[in-house]
Design a binder for these strands. Structure first.
Length: 588
RNA sequence: GGUCCCGUGGUGUAGCCUGGCCAAACACGCGGCCCUGUCAAGGCCGAGAACGCCGGUUCGAAUCCGGUCGGGACCGCCA
């Protein structure tokens, strides 16, 4: 018998009492009582207590005194019921223990750089460097298993709904639009490059043209962008596309999927259907496109009330076309100067010119009417503080969104045990970029609402998009759209976006051509599994749910990637490296 | 591209604002000895850091200043 077929340490239960077993695992703890030594033997399934008794098995006991943390051992013994009173109800295996008769050290171990236990908050860089040790922690192993189960539910669910998984290539054509591409040099075509997929977007649409009808894929996508707590370079997404569908079909499909995932993995019944909110309303009320509805604070627009105000810091931004937004800080009267400074620093860090509050220094520049309007709009009462930000609309929204979240954290307003999914829908086709230019809010294949099309020249920002995001507890867990399927409309949208005929042909010619050979109306959605996992695992850090994540500066601290390659390799690829003047990265 | 925070024994922190009492404290871990029912075992003893790196200010720096490297949070960016 090999160790592979041996029972799992963490699986032993009272029913196994009396069985002779051979166990393989890692030494998690050793408690040496002299004549009696206990070790907790750990494997992926958990840990079980093994007892070495010098009177019963002196040889095994002698060897056990040499054991140290993280040694890999083989133990032979008998599963016994623990003495009455010494059961451990905190361990699933706590009713039993293994009386050891034989011990073999398979592999000794150095003292690990951090303890292999949950709740040991070692520095993240250290955890990443020794990820193989970090992943030994029970919580990380549970995460990997949870992740596996989530994907398994997805496969089963999509299959049950007659979707088929189709693989799409990793080596694609680069696009100047959207996220920055990771590119791969072509050895056979000097000076030419492939791009790694940001998503299989165009390919899945072409699969619809191909008549597949219902496609899905657990797809890896790569985006060369700056990282955040909820962002990694390589993401895994459930990618879905379907023909002859409307928004409602997509919503129903995904709500059904989430219901199943939550039911099977958390035993939670999600209320279906999910509520929906218009993107503009969402940005106003919550200051973000991914609101957390587990707390109620709503942001108010007080621009009109302050249009004539004496306070220049508030009025000037309005005169420049901006807005003033306000939010209540419950029981905020008692905030110290220091706490207010922290909030102001946060607002400035997000790009605001400043932060105002009522009651505060601005009171004397405000009329009683203005003040009353603000208090009423924010539903502020005695003891509450109101925070005000005056700025360009997008900036004010961003800052208020951050403040709203910060207030909720400080006042512990978040109802942690709730699940609050929603659809942000409809969204809008165009957004304004920093320079005030028209830019698309989504990818350019997103269909506008047909009835809004006559606004496209006059009031482009009012044109709704058939696009939607699914948000759960403040995390965007899916997003997609109904696509354009008519060549004429697609060309029109490209045109409005200012793409030249030539660029349209070279970038999207294949798609437009395909649209001339019989194309079904279609739409789809993609769900970032890493973000989904964050929600399911209750963590704010994606790196906690990714097996081998990179740092904020795109480095793999374990592998030491990226790294330089041999000159010969570069030569073969027809590449010359030009080092930047400064800021050169040093490989670790 | 920008703003902010952090960097002290193996690990996590304290000290830093208000330089000297700090070759630096505490906990965990580690090593040794004792211990037959513990499970964060316990008891006793012990080893281990000149405070990321470079430079500056000062009679004197972990502590102040500048730079640099590394990690993180956020804004921009992420169609």
């Amino acid at each position: 018998m090999s160790g592979f077929t041996a029972p799992h340490c963490g699986s032993l239960r009272a029913a196994d009492v009396g069985n002779g077993v051979e166990l393989y695992g890692w030494v998690a703890h050793r408690r040496d009582h002299g004549g009696l030594i206990f070790i907790d033997l750990r494997d992926r399934w958990g840990a079980v207590q093994v007892v070495f008794n010098t009177e019963v098995m002196p040889e095994a006991h002698r060897k056990a005194s040499e054991l140290r943390s993280e040694y890999v051992v083989r133990v032979k013994g008998e599963v016994t019921r623990r003495r009455t009173g010494s059961e451990n109800p905190r361990m699933p295996t706590g009713e039993v223990e293994v009386a050891a008769s034989e011990l073999e050290v398979i592999s000794a171990a150095k003292t690990p750089p951090f303890q292999i236990e949950d709740d040991v908050d070692a520095d993240e860089a250290l955890r990443l460097k020794y990820r193989y040790l970090d992943l030994r922690r029970p919580r990380m192993q549970q995460m990997l298993e949870l992740r596996h189960k989530v994907v398994k539910v997805m496969h089963r669910y999509m299959d049950a709904n007659e979707f088929i998984e189709v693989e799409t290539p990793m080596l694609l054509k680069g696009t100047p639009e959207g996220s920055r591409d990771f590119i791969v040099p072509s050895r056979l075509h000097p000076g030419e490059f492939f791009a790694l997929p940001q998503s299989p977007q165009q390919l899945k649409q072409l699969l619809m043209v191909a008549g597949i009808g219902r496609y899905y894929q657990i797809a890896r996508c790569l985006r060369d962008e700056d990282l955040r707590a909820d962002r990694v370079v390589e993401i895994t997404q459930l990618d879905v596309e379907m023909s002859f569908c409307t928004e409602e079909d997509v919503f129903a499909l995904i709500e059904g999927l989430w219901a199943k995932v939550w039911k099977e993995l958390l035993a939670v019944d999600l209320p279906i259907p999910f509520p929906r909110i218009d993107m503009q309303e969402c940005l106003l009320k919550y200051g973000t496109d991914k609101p957390d509805l587990r707390y109620d604070l709503e942001i108010a627009d007080v621009t009109e009330a302050l249009r004539q105000t004496e306070s220049t810091v508030l009025r000037a931004p309005i005169e420049e076309g901006g807005v003033v937004r306000a939010v209540r800080f419950p029981d905020g009267h008692g905030l110290s100067r220091r706490e207010l400074d922290e909030l102001a620093l946060m607002a400035k860090g997000a790009g605001a010119k400043g932060l105002a509050w009522i009651p505060g220094p601005l009171d004397k520049r405000m009329t009683e009417g203005e003040r009353a309007a603000i208090l009423s709009a924010t539903k502020a009462g005695d003891g509450d503080l109101v925070l005000l930000v005056a700025d360009r609309r997008r900036k004010a929204e961003t800052v208020m969104g951050l403040l709203r979240r910060e207030i909720a954290r400080r006042r512990k307003l978040i109802r942690e045990n709730e699940w609050r999914p929603l659809w942000v829908y409809p969204m809008y086709l165009f957004e304004e970029d920093d320079l005030g230019n028209l830019t698309y809010g989504h990818h350019p294949f997103t269909s506008p609402w047909p009835e809004d099309m006559d606004l496209i020249d006059t009031k482009p920002y009012q044109v709704r998009a058939r696009a939607y995001d699914c948000v759960m507890n403040g995390v965007e867990i899916a997003g997609g759209s109904i696509r354009i399927h008519e060549r004429g409309l697609q060309e029109r949208v490209f045109e409005v976006l200012g793409l030249s005929k030539e660029r349209i042909r070279s970038q999207f010619g294949h798609l437009l051509d395909a649209f001339e050979y019989g194309v079904p109306p279609h739409g789809g959605i993609a769900s970032g599994i890493d973000r989904l996992m964050m929600v399911l695992a209750h963590t704010d850090n994606v790196r906690d749910v990714v097996p081998f994540p990179k740092t904020q500066s795109h480095q793999d601290l374990m592998l030491g990637a990226p790294s330089q390659v041999e000159p010969a390799q570069l030569e073969e690829l027809h590449i010359q490296v030009v080092q930047p003047q400064k800021g050169t990265k040093t490989p670790s």
